[in-house]
Design a binder for these strands. Structure first.
Length: 425
RNA sequence: GGAGAAGUACCCAAGUGGUUAAGGGGACGGUUUGCUAAACCGUUAGGCGUGAAAGCGUGCGAGGGUUCGAACCCCUCCUUCUCCGCCA
């Protein structure tokens, strides 16, 4: 959510920034609603003040034995008037909210306009592996090595679901443990969250109302709206809704392991077969609540922490700064870590580190008290995957494959696998 | 799943239709003091909206309703607790 007052005062600047994100906003109706809203507030409050005044008089007059029927009659009319003005006001308010809640965040000043084609590669780490044999696709590798069972996954749950089994399951779990151990060493607080959350969490994180179709809703439609989290971020952004934190409590650095559930409506074709895009995948997520002045530094910390995880695995990757339209709606700035997938001849996102600025905090009313000024301000939120395993495992097996169809286990994972060095059929 | 009870500020808690939402604890400030404690005095409803400001409005879990007037009466929902049932 953007600041209503800021838009009122700088509509042209906001419009220009939103255009960079590919969002063409017409502020005309909003600005007149905004003005109408303040007019209605002034009018109703004057009437309410009068009603309060007279209603306080009535018992005094009664006690003095006077007839109050004239006052009561007059206040009845005032009450009716208030009721109809309040109805007008709430109609205006809901128009304003509906407009505001659909506006994406403003891009940061150093984020360029345009889509993917304008993403900027910040640096490349490592080199593409050279094979003196015909390298296999990760789906063939994990199937031949009995690490993943796609067919039975689909049998249980439909396409887009798979089963990790045997050494595949252990490798998946090793990755999660490796990530978590790094975050613990960096002093992040570990959380295990509910995997089902309510509507407010989706709203705060910026997912709703726009992307309600992308999630798995649970329970009967008549039940309270609840859904399976598409990412731990959805729950983590909702943690402190409607709270005022002490500045001493910031920054809050948190990580959580959760499965993630996404509908991914529409088919993605053979190009993305395998573990690249599924309805359920595992992810360890980092999240920070910070004071506004620390946002930029926190974002650098998050992207480098995520990059360190990939370096630790010794996998070839690059880091890109996304152009405005490629950032998700809630974010002002995003860096992606893209890992090399040899079979696809492409760099594929394994982590996004993003700053939401005050966008999520305003939606969820998450604030802190500024120690110096004593004033209450919105916190800033940031998140980064660290990492999504379903994109990492294909890179591991493809980049580390050997001529005999075996896969060399990255050194950092071996302690989690009883010292196993090579996965063989 | 069934039955019942509750939700008031940092905490405990009184308040069952009327002017200003008791009281206590804690915290903070002060008096006193070599220092600490005690005692005593004082402050402790913030936030939000509106406004140039003074002010005004709003706030008793949330949202509606009744009323000239609602913490209080009515409806819906959320959360917590107790008992019963079921269960890893």
């Amino acid at each position: 959510m953007l600041d209503q007052v800021y838009i009122r005062k700088n509509p042209e600047e906001v419009r220009e920034k939103l255009l960079r994100k590919g969002f063409d906003a017409d502020f005309g109706p909003f600005l007149s609603d905004d003005q109408e809203r303040r007019r209605l507030i002034a009018e109703t409050e004057e009437l309410k003040a009068e009603r309060n005044r007279v209603s306080a008089e009535i018992p005094k007059l009664k006690k003095a034995g006077q007839d109050v029927s004239a006052e009561v009659e007059r206040m009845r009319d005032v009450g009716d008037k208030i009721k109809s003005l309040d109805a007008e006001l709430s109609a205006v308010n809901s128009r304003i909210t509906k407009f505001l809640e659909r506006l994406p965040n403003l891009p940061a000043d150093d984020v360029v306009a345009g889509g993917k084609e304008n993403n900027e590669v910040m640096y490349v780490w490592g080199e593409k592996p050279e094979f003196d044999f015909a390298p296999k696709h990760h789906v063939d590798l994990v199937t031949d090595l009995h690490m993943i069972d796609y067919e039975r996954g689909a049998k249980l749950s439909g396409s887009g679901f798979w089963i990790y089994k045997g050494i595949g399951a252990r490798l998946e779990w090793a990755l999660i443990n490796y990530f978590m151990d790094q975050h613990l060493a960096d002093g992040y607080e570990m959380m295990l969250l509910p995997h089902v959350v309510n509507y407010d969490c989706g709203y705060t994180s910026g997912q709703f109302p726009k992307f309600e179709g992308d999630i798995f809703r649970v329970g009967d439609p008549s039940d309270t709206f609840r859904f399976l989290i598409p990412t731990a971020e959805t729950a983590l952004a909702g943690l402190y809704q409607n709270e005022i934190l002490a500045e001493e409590d910031l920054p809050k650095k948190i990580f959580a392991y959760t499965p993630c559930f996404r509908r991914e409506a529409g088919s993605h074709g053979a190009e993305e077969r395998g573990m690249i895009r599924g309805h359920q995948f595992n992810k360890v997520e980092m999240f920070q609540y910070v004071v506004p002045a620390d946002t930029e530094q926190a974002l650098e910390e998050l992207i480098e922490k995520a990059a360190d995880l990939v370096r630790g695995l010794n996998l070839h990757f690059r880091v890109s700064k996304l152009a405005a339209e490629d950032c998700s709606a809630s974010m002002e700035k995003t860096y992606d870590i893209e890992i090399w997938i040899p079979s696809m001849n492409i760099y594929k996102e394994v982590s996004s580190a993003s700053s939401a600025g005050a966008y999520q905090a305003r939606r969820g009313n998450v604030r802190y008290r500024n120690k110096e000024t004593g004033k209450v301000e919105f916190v800033h939120t940031l998140n980064a995957s660290g990492l999504a395993t379903s994109r990492v495992m294909p890179a591991i097996v493809e980049q580390n494959q050997n001529a005999d169809g075996s896969v060399t286990v990255p050194e950092v994972l071996r302690p989690y696998l009883g010292g196993l060095e090579v996965i063989r059929p």
